[in-house]
């Protein structure tokens, strides 16, 4: 006998495409289609629905980066393009997420350099890219414009729109056909509000990924987990304003006390486990891109995701 769990879902998670191959006019070796889920994560019984992707986060000014990563990566971090390349070739990431931390220096104005950095990363890796723009309203417009322009035809995922600043990034995404990350602070309602705001200025549902803001394990994951579950739940119940795939990045993981103050000999493992446990929980709650900063977390997560996708053995569930 087969049991039907009868959740009576009516909604489907919408699709978002990241990366464009030569066939699509871009230069990436692959392009990912996220979304499409029709049930709770891993209950789809649909072999074609994708496993979560793992993105390795890198940056172009390591001054703003965790000392743990600076130490682990050594000289690598001084060359953004080499760093991006190893993400693909050595650590096996699905995506590279580039933080333009160079723009966070006070009175930053060298917009041209932004384009150059992105170009060098596009040359160094064939993976689809997530580009994280500026953090400063004053230069947002120029930075996002430059990101959009440099990545024309590559279908970037651009970060990050928030309720307080979404117009510049949306303009760049619309002009150059990129998707964008819509981040709201750990709340299903706020996530929905931002999606409505974006829809109302013309950003299509298939160009938005929800970032529900992921608190690190022990530092907010207890709320993030449920916020993600509720977003997925509402989407499956038919709320199209929440029916976008989710991206999750627990960026505080390497700054929290447990990791920062760990015995130096154990620090890398602590960082990896912290990112790993967070990533597993986020994937189960519905995240489809998991971002990490420790290069060694990438493979751990990918191995686990492969086995989570494998529903071997008879379960008796329809």
């Amino acid at each position: 006998m087969e049991y039907d769990l009868n959740f009576s879902w009516t909604g489907t998670i919408g699709h978002v495409v990241i990366g464009a191959t030569r066939a699509d006019g871009g230069t990436r070796k692959t392009s990912y289609t996220l979304g499409g889920g029709t049930s709770l994560p891993y209950l789809d019984n649909n072999p074609s629905s994708p496993s979560p992707l793992v993105a390795l986060e890198i940056c172009d000014n390591p001054e703003f980066w965790s000392p743990i990563i600076r130490r682990f990566c050594g000289d690598l971090i001084h060359s953004t393009s080499d760093w991006a390349k190893t993400a693909e070739t050595v650590y096996g990431a699905d995506l590279v997420r580039l933080y333009l931390t160079s723009t966070r220096v006070r009175n930053f104005s060298d917009i041209v350099s932004v384009g150059k950095t992105i170009e060098s990363v596009l040359d160094a890796t064939a993976l689809p890219l997530i580009i994280e723009g500026s953090n400063e309203p004053g230069i947002d417009s120029d930075v996002f414009q430059k990101c959009g322009e440099t990545g024309q035809d590559e279908r970037f995922l651009l970060g990050t729109a928030e309720a307080s600043r979404y117009r510049s990034i949306a303009a760049a995404a619309l002009a150059y056909d990129h998707s964008l990350i819509a981040q709201s602070p750990i709340d299903v309602n706020l996530a929905k509000q931002l999606n409505i705001l974006l829809r109302e200025i013309g950003v299509q549902q298939d160009h938005i990924m929800i970032d529900p803001y992921t608190g690190a394990l022990g530092y907010g994951l207890e709320y993030s987990f449920s916020a993600m579950e509720r977003i997925r739940f509402s989407a499956l119940k038919g709320d199209t304003d929440l029916a976008m795939p989710m991206i999750c990045s627990a960026i505080d993981s390497l700054n929290i006390k447990e990791v920062r103050e760990a015995d130096p000999a154990l620090q890398d493992e602590m960082a990896m486990q912290w990112e790993f446990y967070t990533g597993i929980a986020a994937a189960v709650a519905g995240a489809e891109i998991i971002c990490v900063r420790h290069p060694k977390t990438v493979r751990m997560l990918k191995n686990a995701f492969a086995d989570m996708k494998n529903n071997a053995g008879f379960s008796g569930v329809k």
Binding site: D187, N189, L190, K192, Q193, I196
Partner: peptide, 12 residues
């Protein structure tokens, strides 16, 4: 929760 969903015009 109801409060947050009401902090939108007119409502989330």
């Amino acid at each position: 929760d109801e409060y947050t969903s009401s902090t939108f015009l007119p409502h989330t």
